[in-house]
């Protein structure tokens, strides 16, 4: 079972993005679970959620404490202590940022880093800076956990055709860097 935590801000579409992943894996005959963090979601406020993917029924119904993967939709969240809490050694971080790797202050536990500047992609396809669908493309490429064609269909069905194009472009543009994840 893969345990994933998502971080973003209210208005970036964290919940809908995660639900789209769950819909896709379920459609693919597999199992997924998403629990949004139950805060008061307001535009701009930090939001997070817990995603699990498995090839059998997911019985556990709790928050994710030791994620293997982090999907971070906003690089201004990197300094928050909760963001990297419990990340497993050698874990994967999929991050929306325009910064270079040198500018980022990442913990040493990160094994794989996937970087995408989602803003220009979102702006060019959906005319608004909502990074979630582009980041789904980055997530799919970086983790290989979701059937990519099916995910794109679900993105198009849920968010509209321009979002499929955004995800597609992100899939091509995401930079995947192996950091080793030294303990």
């Amino acid at each position: 079972m893969k345990e994933i935590r998502l971080h973003g801000r209210g208005g970036q579409g964290v919940v809908k993005a995660a639900q789209t992943i769950v819909s896709t894996v379920v459609d693919d005959g597999s199992y997924g679970q998403f629990i949004p963090f139950f805060g008061v979601e307001r535009k701009g406020s930090p939001v997070y959620g817990f995603l699990r993917l498995n090839d059998e029924d997911i019985r556990i119904k709790t928050q994710v404490y030791y994620p293997e993967i982090l999907l971070i939709l906003d690089d201004t969240l990197l300094d928050m202590p909760q963001t990297f809490a419990g990340l497993q050694e050698g874990g994967t971080v999929v991050l929306n940022t325009s910064k270079s790797i040198e500018e980022l202050n990442l913990p040493k536990t990160v094994g794989t880093l996937a970087l995408l500047d989602a803003e220009p992609i979102a702006l060019s396809h959906i005319k608004r800076n909502i990074p979630n669908t582009a980041m789904l493309g980055a997530f799919a490429k970086a983790t290989g956990l979701v059937n990519w064609d099916k995910l794109k269909d679900h993105i198009a069905a849920t968010f509209g055709e321009p979002n499929r194009l955004a995800a597609d472009e992100a899939y091509e543009k995401v930079r995947i860097i192996n950091l080793g994840g030294a303990a």
Partner: peptide, 9 residues
Amino acid sequence: FYLSHLSER
């Protein structure tokens, strides 16, 4: 929330 807002198969 733990079920009302949880998405699953």
